[in-house]
Design a protein around this nucleic acid. Structure first.
Lengths: 348, 348
DNA sequence: TATATGGTCGCACACGTGTGCACCACAAAG
DNA sequence: CTTTGTGGTGCACACGTGTGCGACCATATA
C-alpha cells in the first residue's frame, strides 16, 4: 500500500532505477533530475522498505540486544546506554529477555537470525554453551557485557570489579577498620571471585592475617540473602566493625537486620554495598557503595559493535580480540564511618 | 550466505516452490516429500529470511514500542509485560526511547515505518500532536498506555488512578485522619487530575469542608519536589496528620524532610505514596502506597494489539474504540498509622 | 479403452530495491 | 563528415520467498 519507487518513477516519467539512484545520491544522475525526484518523493510521502533494501544489501540495520530481564533496573540502564549511542546511526534495536529460560534463549536466537540482525549485544548473565556457540556460528559480530557464561567471547565489555572492590576496601581501611568481612554471593562465580579478590588482596596489603577466614558466601544476592548473611555474622565474637557486601541489595538486607537488632549504622558497624543501584541513595543511612557505570558500559558495547560492523564492511578481518574493562567510582555516603575506639562491640 | 530454499530444492531435486510449501505445511504436498524436505532443512541449518517473507506477505512480525526512557523502572516493567505476552507469538519488538526529544520522536517513527512494523505500543508521556497524527496515518494499529498527550487515541490501556486515589484516602480516613493534604505534581496534568479528584471526592464524602484548600501542587515529581513540598507543608498550623503524595518518589522526599526535621513517621505524620516502585518497600519506614500493576498494563496493551492485528488480517474493520482501565491494589506498609489523640502536633 | 478425478508438483510471476551493462544524445576532436 | 568520448538514463536481472495456475501421472469409473 505505501508508495514505492516505481510509483515515483511513473509520476516522474523515468525508470525506477533512476529514482533509486537519485535517492541514494548516486553522482551518475544529473543534479536537476535528482532534485525533482527527491522533491516528488517527499511530496508523495515515500518511505523506503527496509525489507526490500535488506534483501538486496544483506544489511538489516537492526541490532539484537539480549538481557535476562528488562524490568531489572540494572539492565535498563545498560540498554539505555546502548540506545543513546545508536540513536543517530540508523540502527534499530530488538530487545529480548531470556528470563533465565533456555527455550527462550533458543527462540530469541531464532528470531534474531530470521531477521538477519547485523550484530548482537549479549547482556545476559548465563547463556547455555550450545546457544553461545550457535550465536558465534553466524558470521556476525557479537559483543558480550559482563560475561557470566563459561563460553568466552572474542569481544567483551566488562566492569572492573576487582578495582572497585579495592577502592571500597581502601576506604574502609583508611577509616581504621581491620575486622572487615566480605558478604558474598556464591551463585555468580566470576563476579564474586573478582570482588572477593580485591577484598583479600587489600587486606593482605594492610597486613591483616588470613583474610579468607573473613569471607561468607551466600546462595544468592537478593535482599533476603543479605539479611540472613548479616544475621550469621552477628554470631561472631568480636563482631565485625565493617562489612563489605557483594551488592547493594544485600547491603540493604544487612541494614534491615542491623536495624532490627538495634545496632546503629555506621556507629556500631559500617556497611558498604556495590553497583550503586538507584535506591541505594535513599536508604537510611544512605549507602556507601561503588558506582558501576552501567550506562557507559552499554554505550561502550554499542560503540564497539558499530566499529566491528564497520570493519566487516570494509573487509578488514576482525580477528583481534578486544576486552575492555570499565572502571567506576567510589561513592562515600552515610553508612560507613571512622572506627571509634568504643565501637568494638563485644558479643559476650 | 545463509542457505535458502533454493539450496534445499537443489539438494532435494525439487523446485523451490515445493520446498516453500513443505515448510509452510501446505497440504498439497505429499507427507513423504514434506518430511524429507523438513529434515533436509534442519540438517542444512535453514533459517528463513524475514525480509524476503515480509516483502511478499506485507507482515514484518515486528512490533514497535516507544517509551520516554528505558532506564526508568516504571517503563521497564511495562516493557517486560509486553515482551512476556508476545514471547510465543513470533513477534519481535523494537524498543525505542524518545527521551522527551521531538527530533527523536520523528526519527523513531521513521525507523518504524521503514521496517513496516505491524503495530505500535505507545508508552510515552508526551507525544507531539503532529507525530501522533503521523502515526495514525499509517494504517496500522496503535495502542497507547496511560496517554498523556493531547491527541486521543482510539485504543488505550490506562491505570485507574482515581480509583487508586480513593483507596488511599479511604485507608487514611479509616485510620481517623481528617487533616490530610495532597502533595501533587502540576506537570502531568491528566494523571494529577485523576488522583486529585479521588482525593477531594473522598474527603467530601467524609464531610471534610473545602478539600481544595488542602492541595499543594509542585512543578515536578522527583524526590526533591517531594522534599521541598513537605518543607512547605510543615509551615502550616496545625500540621497535617497525613499526606498523600502524587507518587512514591515524592513520598520518599517527604520522608527525608521529616527525618531531617526530627518528626516521626508514622507516629507524628502518616505518609502515603503511589505507584509502588521497587524501592518503596525498603525505605524506613516502608512506604504505604498503591500498587500500579505495570506489568499487567503492558501485557494488556500487547494483548489488545495482537487482537487488533488479528482482526485486521481477518478483514474485520477495527473501528470500535477500546479503552481499558486497569485497577491496582492498596498496599499498607509502615508509613501510615492510626491517628492518636496526641499526634496533633502544633507548630506554635 | 476413453474419460474423469484427484493428488503432486513445477512454471512463472510478484513483492520493492539495487546495480552492471548497454544504449542514446550530444559535444568535441579528427 | 565521421569518430571518439562523455554524461545521463533505461533494461534486465538479482536478492529470498509465496502462490495462482496448469501440467503431469496414477487410479477409478463408465
Amino acid at each position: 500500500m505505501p508508495v514505492t519507487i516505481k510509483d515515483i518513477a511513473r509520476k516522474a516519467g523515468v525508470s525506477h532505477a533512476t529514482v533509486s539512484r537519485s535517492l541514494n545520491g548516486n553522482p551518475d544522475i544529473s543534479d536537476r533530475t535528482a532534485a525533482v525526484i527527491r522533491d516528488l518523493a517527499t511530496e508523495m510521502g515515500y518511505v523506503p522498505s527496509a525489507a526490500a533494501r535488506g534483501l538486496k544489501t544483506n544489511r538489516s540495520h537492526v541490532l539484537g540486544v539480549i538481557v535476562s530481564r528488562i524490568d531489572n533496573p540494572y539492565f535498563g540502564e545498560i540498554v539505555q546506554g546502548i540506545e543513546d549511542t545508536l540513536k543517530n546511526t540508523g540502527y534499530s534495536i530488538f530487545v529480548s529477555s531470556t528470563n533465565f529460560d533456555q527455550n527462550r534463549e533458543k527462540d530469541v536466537i531464532q528470531a534474531f537470525s530470521e531477521h538477519r540482525v547485523d550484530g548482537i549485544i549479549l547482556g545476559s548473565v548465563s547463556f547455555k554453551q550450545k546457544h553461545a556457540a550457535l550465536l558465534t556460528s553466524y558470521n556476525i559480530p557479537v559483543v558480550v557485557i559482563n560475561n557470566q557464561s563459561r563460553q568466552s567471547f572474542r569481544y567483551s565489555v566488562a566492569h572492573d570489579d576487582e578495582y572497585g572492590a579495592r577502592q571500597i576496601m581502601r576506604h574502609l581501611l583508611e577509616l581504621g577498620h581491620r575486622n572487615i568481612w566480605y558478604l558474598g554471593n556464591a551463585h555468580s562465580r566470576r563476579i564474586n571471585n573478582d570482588r572477593c579478590r580485591g577484598f583479600t588482596q587489600e587486606l593482605e596489603a594492610a597486613g591483616v592475617p588470613d583474610p579468607q577466614a573473613h569471607v561468607l558466601n551466600m546462595d544468592g544476592s537478593e535482599i533476603q540473602d543479605g539479611s540472613r548473611g548479616m544475621g550469621l555474622l552477628l554470631q561472631h565474637d568480636p563482631l565485625p566493625t565493617a562489612v563489605f557486601c557483594f551488592n547493594d541489595l544485600m547491603a540493604i538486607g544487612a541494614l534491615k537486620t542491623l536495624q532490627e537488632k538495634g545496632l546503629q549504622v555506621p556507629a556500631d558497624i559500617s556497611i558498604a554495598g556495590f553497583d550503586d543501584i538507584a535506591y541505594s541513595a535513599y536508604t537510611t543511612p544512605a549507602l556507601t557503595t561503588f558506582h558501576q557505570p552501567k550506562f557507559e558500559i552499554g554505550a561502550e558495547a554499542a560503540g564497539l559493535l558499530l566499529e566491528l560492523m564497520l570493519n566487516k564492511d570494509a573487509g578488514n578481518g576482525h580477528d583481534i580480540a578486544f576486552a575492555r574493562k570499565i572502571r567506576g567510582q567510589l561513592l562515600v555516603r552515610e553508612s560507613t564511618a571512622q572506627l571509634s575506639s568504643g565501637s568494638e562491640v563485644s558479643n559476650a
